[in-house]
């Protein structure tokens, strides 16, 4: 089991470093994720955010929701900017220009577009160079900020405005790019996937990611009511379904040691997840079976990796 820094919700810091009054859509789980990230990180933190929903919704001049130092530069370079921040802090601390005893968390945040696609090179460079930066990917599976266009993180068959469902197309053609596996291939100290429905699992991963020496990466699924087409009250319910169906597996790779942190003894059929969202409305039962097969294979692969059945058989 992962290190349990926080055993119950009552252990979480009460301070809020992402202030209310931000303009994320009602029910946007990005708010939930970032609130907890900052609770865990605390005030000695510098955040770099890539262009995206989060950036735009939290900093409409002259207002900011951020209570920690924060910078936005561009879409594709959060990892490079964070590399620069980290190097600066190191150099300035070594030269005694700032307090050398203070541990400052450097966090880069990107959405799926800014991570899977346009920011991928910068991310890979940062990981290879070994900067002590935590990278958070909040994955809402499309370019939501520009109005729901397909990204490398969009799952197969999902409708987006650039992969519409029509007589010829059935939403996105290709499956989701396995970004966290690719990041893990960089052999950095810590990689994890998380889900805001499982808050304790998520915050413990944030804490671990900030603690390790060297780069870390936490990939969080972020249901988007606007782009996935569901009622805002269902954000967490759908996030939970993603894990209960095996569509989203919560794992961590800590210094090479792989663990599934949220075992699912009995798996729900993926139709429960798919049918809850408008973006998959065009799919037939047959199409959904294709997704189910894809998940079955992935579950098999994960179980093999762990060496036991952590994700159980289909039960309902």
């Amino acid at each position: 089991m992962p290190e349990r820094y926080y055993k119950s919700l009552r252990d979480l810091p009460k301070e809020e470093y992402l202030a209310s009054g931000h303009r994320l859509c009602a029910g946007c789980a990005a708010g939930t994720i970032i609130r907890h990230l900052l609770k865990v990180a605390g005030p000695n933190t510098i955040v770099v955010t890539a262009t995206g929903c989060l950036e735009v919704a939290t900093t409409p001049y002259p207002l900011t929701a951020w209570r920690v130092p924060w910078i936005h530069v561009a879409f594709e370079n959060a990892a490079s900017v964070a590399s620069g921040v980290e190097a600066a802090i190191k150099a300035l601390q070594r030269k005694g220009l700032i307090d050398p005893s203070k541990r400052i968390n450097i966090i880069a945040i990107g959405g799926d577009g800014g991570t899977y696609d346009i920011g991928f090179q910068a991310l890979s460079g940062m990981l290879e160079r070994g900067h002590k930066v935590m990278y958070l990917l909040y994955d809402n599976e499309a370019y939501m900020n520009t109005g729901i266009q397909r990204s490398g993180g969009t799952p197969q068959f999902a409708w987006t405005t650039t992969t519409p469902a029509g007589r010829v197309w059935k939403g996105k053609h290709q499956p989701k790019k396995p970004i966290s596996d690719i990041v893990a291939a960089h052999r950095i100290p810590y990689v994890a996937t998380a889900n805001p429905a499982y808050v304790l699992d998520m915050v413990n991963k944030f804490r671990r990611a900030l603690e390790v020496e060297g780069p870390s990466f936490v990939h969080v699924i972020q249901p988007c009511p606007t782009g996935w087409r569901f009622d805002p009250s269902k954000s967490i319910e759908i996030a939970k379904l993603a894990t209960e169906t095996g569509m989203w597996i919560n794992w961590e790779l800590d210094h090479g040691e792989f663990r599934v942190t949220v075992p699912v003894p009995k798996r729900k059929h993926v139709k429960h997840y798919i049918r809850a969202q408008g973006r998959f409305r065009h799919l037939t039962d047959e199409d959904i079976e294709k997704i189910q097969e894809y998940i079955n294979k992935e579950v098999e692969r994960i179980n093999k990796l762990v060496g036991k059945e952590v994700i159980g058989p289909l039960a309902e």
Binding site: V48, G84, V85, A87, A88
Partner: peptide, 8 residues
């Protein structure tokens, strides 16, 4: 940009 923004 990141390094300069951090004061270096």
């Amino acid at each position: 940009v990141g390094a300069s923004a951090a004061g270096a």
